[in-house]
């Protein structure tokens, strides 16, 4: 956004992903053991994202084949998709936080001087972290309440609370990413969108 014209030219080659380079394996910038753990979590999250999406396609098609060819619908198909969508969403929000991919409206923010942007970014990251941790806590409570009531999914006949397991985990991981981003911004001179994405580093890649 700082150079609208160059971003215009750059974006001519930019689509969903056609010209994205195959994403290199993520390496955490965090020091020591923390970095190893972060890298591992990132890997797990990407596998969950990819597997979740592909499973969803297979499951949906299988239901069509069952209904159309074998005259018998897969009754748990919809419930399975629901489980997958929750998994994808909550693995994804943490992944997106790590890679600075959450949607934001940065027009005014970008117009500020670096001196103002830095404390603002720290405040944004901290406040976001607080809400993510809060939601992690309340979604855990929600899950426990569900477990206490014993509600089951009508077709799969498994307890409903099981499908929400990813929710508190996802919120907690997202909160952690934002907290680390705030800390990184306090320590380093540059301004960071996430622990390893520098603000404005590559307009196309990261500013969404």
């Amino acid at each position: 956004m700082k150079e609208p014209h160059s971003s215009q030219t750059q974006s001519q080659t930019d689509t969903t992903s056609t010209d994205d380079p195959p994403s290199p394996a993520y390496r955490s910038d965090l020091p020591g053991v923390l970095g190893t753990v972060d890298t591992a979590i990132s890997r797990i999250e990407s596998v969950m994202l990819a597997a979740g999406v592909l499973l969803m396609a297979v499951n949906t098609i299988a239901n069509v084949v069952g209904r159309f060819v074998f005259q018998s619908s897969i009754f748990f198909s919809e419930e399975l998709n629901r489980i997958l969508i929750i998994m994808i969403t909550f693995a994804g929000i943490s992944y997106a936080a790590r890679h600075g991919r959450h949607i934001r409206m940065s027009a005014i923010y970008d117009a500020l001087s670096a001196k103002l942007r830095k404390p603002l970014m720290i405040a944004i990251a901290l406040i976001t972290a607080v809400f993510m941790f809060g939601l992690a806590w309340y979604s855990l409570q929600y899950m426990l309440t569900q477990a206490g009531r014993g509600r089951v999914l009508p077709s799969l006949q498994i307890p409903v609370w099981l499908i929400y397991v990813w929710v508190p985990v996802g919120f907690f991981m997202t909160g952690t990413q934002y907290l680390l981003t705030a800390i990184k911004n306090m320590i380093e001179r540059d301004i960071y969108l996430s622990t390893n994405v520098l603000e404005g580093y590559d307009d196309d890649e990261f500013e969404i």
Binding site: P22, L49, A50, T89, A96
Partner: peptide
Amino acid sequence: FAGLYDTAKSTGLITAVVFIL
């Protein structure tokens, strides 16, 4: 297959970013 993995992953990411909203 590597391309498929990448595509599925980026699909999941976009989905998550929109669905949380």
